[in-house]
Design a protein around this nucleic acid. Structure first.
Length: 103
DNA sequence: TATTTGACCAAGA
DNA sequence: ATCTTGGCCAAAT
């Protein structure tokens, strides 16, 4: 089973209203390849099932999937996240540690 | 098989 | 606070 597969499975376990980091995911999987995790999500083989918008940087910032200019699609998701209780401001998680889901 | 790439991260300037 | 640098590991080419 490739690492990316594990990533997807693990990500499915993340409850709503919580976010996680690439690093935590990798750590939970027993690997140190945070980057590979990001790549897996970028490829996103199973887009509808994988809540990639719930995965953020270890610093609490949102992943590059929103880019820097037009964060349209992602911004929608961000708004949705805020509905779930996660506050996001300018692409950064507010109260990050608070709603961070640890495995 | 080897090289490149990346939705990372931590530390330094 | 922002930008750069180097290191990290897996997957794609």
């Amino acid at each position: 089973m490739s690492l990316s597969e594990k990533v997807y499975n693990l990500l499915k376990k993340v409850p709503k209203g919580k976010v996680t980091t690439y690093k935590e995911i990798a750590h939970a999987l027993g690997t140190k390849a945070y980057r590979a995790v990001g790549q897996a999500l970028k490829r996103n083989p199973d887009s509808p099932r994988i809540p990639c918008h719930r995965v953020v940087f270890a610093s609490g910032k949102i992943g590059g999937f929103m880019g820097k200019k037009n964060g349209k699609a992602i911004k929608k998701k961000i708004t949705l996240l805020e509905k779930e209780g996660i506050k996001v401001i300018k692409g950064k998680i507010k109260e990050f540690e608070d709603n961070l889901f640890k495995f």
